[in-house]
Amino acid sequence: MIGTSFSFYTPSTERELLITLSKGALPVAGMTDVMVKIRTGKMKAKALSSVSRIESLKGVQMADDAVTIMAATTYTELLENKGLKWRLPILLDAVSEIGSTQIRNRGTLVGNIVNASPAGDGLLVAYLLDGNLEICSNEGCRSVDVRDFVKGPGQVALAPGEYIRSVTLKIPPKDSLYAFVKVGQRSAMAISVASVGVLLRLNAGTIEDFRIALGSVAPTVVRPLELERNLVSLKMEDGLFKTLAGELMNYISPIDDIRASAWYRREVVKRIVENLSVYLKGVEKQ
């Protein structure tokens, strides 16, 4: 029982979608968050327009250096896509821990990005893989970095009449190590209390590329670019991660909330980063 009424459109083309948007409908995908928010009154909408039946918004396109995921592609479809296994294993690690089978059958990566929760596991990976969105409207399409698109918790730069076509994620350099660590209140169907995503490429013991993204420890996902750059060309030595963990504390501003305290979030992120070597994995060869 939702207890509130709204119009619901299911356009089958992007053209039809634009017509519904011009009537004031909000574009939606899997609606796994939207329906919850509407029921509790946290979100009001007169009309919703679902992208999930639009063929041109489905699927995954592979290029040499990037993968483009269309807006209506569900998490389950990502998990079943064999080509992603070696291109973006960190994405699949994160997606496999989102919600439950039922949620993953409906939920989408683009939806997770628009939701702009600092706890969004998909959003964290999009930050880490330098995600870029294709945003369209009657005026045409534009591209925007995910990091610029997210303005704050639940706040994004999407104007009325616009919808997202796709997100493009860059494939990390060859032989990168990666880790996605999610801390939740239970092992499935739980929102992240804190999460850490890392990409690391070493060359003869020297760091060539290092990226880290942290979830649920600030108003948005944190990607400390300056800190990342400072690590490049350093030797991979004992104690490096411990130093990194200490420095990371300056980049996060966790809060006490219903799920965990600021103290715990800080402490657990620190301990995970200190012990990163336990979590880092290599990409399985094709």
């Binding site: 919850v36 239970r186 092992s187 499935a188 929102i191 219903i258 799920r259």
Partner: peptide, 24 residues
Amino acid sequence: IKYDEHGRMMTENFNTYIIPTIHE
């Protein structure tokens, strides 16, 4: 169960009141 300082329950549904699942 968590209450705020006014005595309002914050854990009022199963998204915040966490129970075990078959995974546990």
